[in-house]
Amino acid sequence: MNRIQGVLSIYFRDKWIWFLTPLIIISSALIPNLIISSFISYYISLAFILVSSSLVYMFVTGIVSVPQTFSFTISMQVRRKDYFLGTSFMAAMISAGLTLFSLILIILERRGSDRWGLQFVDGVNIPELFGILFVLFMLFFYIGFIISSAFQRYKAKGLLTVLTILILPPCLFMLSLVYEDGHGLYMWLTSISLAEISLWSIPLTAVCGFLSYRLLRRASV
């Protein structure tokens, strides 16, 4: 049997991380908001809430998947390459599922609603939207994945290095907003469309994925 399928079977049997946790997160984000919105005039998009909670879920899943499964998978004599490909395939399937679910909600909410959050997807057609959300979910997964891969490879030093690289640029950017021409930067930031963000995300996703693989390739268990 193909070893990648073997890695997938490891994930399919771990229903908590990959199936029940996203259901719980989505339900806990949506159900209270649905209940509240049925009683009062509600102005935040439920799709927006769903997408943002799904991004957090993908990020956290990326972090927990390596400590949960890497050691076990390698101990079952699976190649590191197959582990990476199998895990990426699993993440892609979950991302596609979350994207579909988000799209259905966006389509439903778009009908006669102008809730806050929907303006981000104004003028974007459905296939484009699928691509945008899918790429964003994968990016967040790989950001989490590179953090845990660095820890697996270099322990605390790796974790500290990756976190510094991931946290420092946004912090400096925010600082520059305060001390430099803050208004201009803010205007530039808000002028970027969702499609542009996702286009920029594609190389970033590829880089995070590739670096995660390189880190895991030399990681011991």
Binding site: R3, G6, I10, R13, D14, S75, M76, Q77
Partner: peptide, 19 residues
């Protein structure tokens, strides 16, 4: 040996049968 935290004995055996 480390196992995924949510695994049961039967899950380990099932995965082993595949690998």
């Amino acid at each position: 040996q480390k196992y995924p935290e949510t695994y049961r004995v039967m899950d380990v055996l099932k995965v082993a049968s595949v690998l």
